[in-house]
Design a protein around this nucleic acid. Sequence first.
DNA 1: CTCTAAATGCGAACGATTCTCATTAACCTT
DNA 2: AAGGTTAATGAGAATCGTTCGCATTTAGAG
Lengths: 137, 137
Amino acid sequence: METKDLKQAGLKATLPRIKILSLMEENTVRHVSAEDVYKTLLESGEDLSLATVYRVLTQFEQAGLVTRHHFEGGHSVFELNEGGHHDHILCVKCGRVDEFVDAVIEERQQKIAAEKGYDMTDHSLYIFGICQACQKL
Amino acid sequence: METKDLKQAGLKATLPRIKILSLMEENTVRHVSAEDVYKTLLESGEDLSLATVYRVLTQFEQAGLVTRHHFEGGHSVFELNEGGHHDHILCVKCGRVDEFVDAVIEERQQKIAAEKGYDMTDHSLYIFGICQACQKL
DNA sequence: CTCTAAATGCGAACGATTCTCATTAACCTT
DNA sequence: AAGGTTAATGAGAATCGTTCGCATTTAGAG
């Protein structure tokens, strides 16, 4: 129930927020832009404004419900936080996105931050390449 | 001589391109936005348009002379390609940027790409944290 | 059920970047 | 070194993603 998730995150359970969270919890989406969310909900007959989508997604990000990615091309992409931290590998041809976790890399990053005198708070790692399907084209 | 670098990259040696490349080759800058380049050159008495700065930086990127980074906050930052590949560690408080290379991470990335069936072309890794100076504030 | 603060919708505003198109400058030719 | 061709530039309008301001609506406490 999205209502409970929202309350736990300290957010009022308003209609737009419920709809957006509910959409992101469908496992058919994974990585969506604000525009995607807006269009999809409009098509489903919901009536909300694009500004609200941006506001809500930003709140979700601050509440730790979603992560904002800066996939190239200017616009942001949002992903539901579930199943813990992971990084991404993207196909530069077709845009396909896969996920991975690597303990060795995670650990090295901590070490590097420490060596440079930083108190590490976060990181972002994207591997770019050509996926198996696109290699055959 | 910037003129030769430009010719080798397949670009006409025009005045704006020479000025911009020359600015980026000063080791005082490292990471600059289009706006930075524009303002700096205006202050040096050069007369060029912001549109040209964007065009030229994009061409430099395509020619492999510079790399475009998507440091958060919407705008792009450019860096001269020299001294080989490296990754970045950024302070989330003051914006300071340091560089590093880690062979272990580089190698793990190749391995992960291979496991996922990707032919890796590139990657981007940013570590975020609080730098030594900002920790003391 | 009522009230109050918080959330929303709408359209204007915004910052970064790109485009259009008339003008200018590079570089090949002579 | 001068001229012609073509690509590059300048200036400002246009576009894109995103945010803001403000009047209206709604969630949730009392």
